[in-house]
C-alpha cells in the first residue's frame, strides 16, 4: 500500500513538474521481435511513418505518448530533431492530404508496455525506469 502511495506521489510530482529531469528514455519492442537494436534514424522513419517496417522488413507499428508529456518532447527532439511545433507542421502536411495520420497515442508507459506485450509488431518509447520483462529495449537515448 505504501509502495502504491509512493508511486502515486511520484506520478503526481511528474505531472506537476514537467521540467523534472527524466531518466534515460528507451525504445522498446515485443520480446519476441527479431530486432535486437535499431538506429535513431530508423526509429525516426518509423515514428514519422516514412516507412512501415523494421530494418529486417517486418511490419512496424509505432505507439506514441500524449502531447505535452516531457518524455514525448525529449523523444521527438532527440530522435527526429523536431519540436512540438515542427512535428505538428510535419503531420499537417500529411493529414491535410489524407495521405497519412500520426501514430496511435496512449496515456502512459504502462499502456505502451501493455500494447507492445500483446502485439509483436509494435514499437514505443518509455522511461527506462518502467522497463520490465514484457518488453525488450532496442535503443537507449541518454
Amino acid at each position: 500500500m505504501i509502495n502504491k502511495i509512493n508511486s502515486l506521489a511520484i506520478t503526481a510530482l511528474l505531472i506537476a513538474s514537467p521540467t523534472l529531469v527524466l531518466a534515460d528514455l528507451v525504445v522498446v519492442v515485443h520480446p519476441d521481435n527479431s530486432v535486437s537494436s535499431i538506429t535513431d534514424a530508423d526509429i525516426s522513419r518509423i515514428f514519422l511513418k516514412k516507412t512501415d517496417s523494421f530494418p529486417d522488413k517486418n511490419k512496424a507499428t509505432p505507439i506514441d505518448q500524449k502531447e505535452g508529456n516531457p518524455l514525448r518532447d525529449a523523444f521527438y527532439s532527440k530522435v527526429t530533431k523536431k519540436d512540438a511545433a515542427q512535428l505538428n507542421s510535419y503531420w499537417s502536411r500529411l493529414i491535410f492530404t489524407g495521405k497519412g495520420t500520426p501514430p496511435k497515442v496512449v496515456r502512459n508507459d504502462k499502456k505502451v508496455k501493455s500494447l507492445i506485450s500483446k502485439n509483436a509488431d509494435h514499437i514505443g518509447y518509455i522511461d527506462s525506469a518502467s522497463v520490465d520483462d514484457t518488453v525488450k529495449v532496442v535503443f537507449t537515448l541518454k
Binding site: N88, S89, S92, R93, F96, T97, K99
Partner: peptide, 18 residues
C-alpha cells in the same frame, strides 16, 4: 484529386505547413 506537380501541391493552402 490534387495534381502532384510541386512539393507543396497536396497542401497548397495549409499555411501552417510551410
Amino acid at each position: 484529386l490534387r495534381i502532384p506537380l510541386f512539393l507543396l501541391s497536396d497542401y497548397l493552402e495549409v499555411g501552417y505547413a510551410y
